[in-house]
Design a binder for these strands. Structure first.
Lengths: 141, 141
DNA sequence: GATACGATCTGTAGCGACTACAGACTCAAG
DNA sequence: CTTGAGTCTGTAGTCGCTACAGATCGTATC
């Protein structure tokens, strides 16, 4: 309601989003090009909301394309909740897959570090593990 | 041993590493520039081993700089096992931090999708969550 | 010999999501 | 009038590849 026109620095402070990133979002069309006061970009409350939305979606790991889609659906009202659900649960699948990947890495790394600490191997356990063939045993033709 | 000279395609097949990626590793100095038979790169058993090492290290999430360091240490014998341990446990810390990040995302996403399925909200729970301020309550000056 | 095919060659540009400059300008305070 | 902070545009860098275009090579077949 009030004339809450702010500059890019203030928008950055309020959203925690880097100034360069804000301009980048404008360049790629994720944020609208705001009106100018002189040469300076002039933002309003709506921009603070939108950018906050983007930032929080990014924190949940959505790609910028997904964020773009979410922004579109957010404008669409209740009807789009089902579509949001589809997007979110697909992304949830991605996140879970990445967690599974990382846990596999974690296990191998933790094992190697533990073997290192035990210090019974002749060589370095991690280096040896990295040099070992994953499938073929060392013997055989 | 035998004259196991192979071309880049065969190296790619044996290591599961893309041809373009092999050339990229050469360009950035991660793999040595091999001798040529005519104009074609000619690799030996050592290259298969080294590239396999790189690939497995990458699968454990090490950055290329870390892989470079590991390769250096691998050549250094037993003395460097302690340094390998330092590298590996630092990286393990990174991996665990990333897992923690992703788990936080997972929780929020799963909650939102569940709230979506419950379908009691007037709006879309995920969209609402993304628009909500994380710290400030909606009331107050 | 011609010719077709597959593999390889070099060099460059693209991806995603920023980040980091350089060098110019605007605006308010001292 | 000068200084300093803020902002502007435009471009290039990051990481780890990946994807071309267009040339060349070696071998097999007709």
């Amino acid at each position: 309601m009030a004339d809450t026109a702010i500059q890019i620095g203030e928008l950055s402070r309020r959203t925690g989003c880097n100034i360069e990133t804000i301009r980048y979002y404008e360049r790629i069309g994720l944020m609208p090009a705001p009106p100018r006061r002189g040469r300076y970009r002039s933002y309003g409350a709506g921009d603070v909301g939108r950018l906050g939305f983007v930032r929080r979606a990014r924190e949940l790991g959505f790609t910028l394309d997904e964020v773009r889609a979410l922004l579109g659906l957010a404008a669409g009202g209740e009807a789009s909740c089902a579509e949001v659900r589809v997007l979110a649960s697909a992304h949830l699948g991605d996140v879970r897959a990445r967690i599974a990947d990382l846990k596999r890495m974690e296990r191998v790394l933790a094992d190697s570090v533990r073997a290192c600490d035990a210090g019974q191997d002749p060589g370095c356990p991690l280096i040896d593990a990295l040099y070992a063939e994953p499938r073929l045993p060392p013997t055989g033709c």
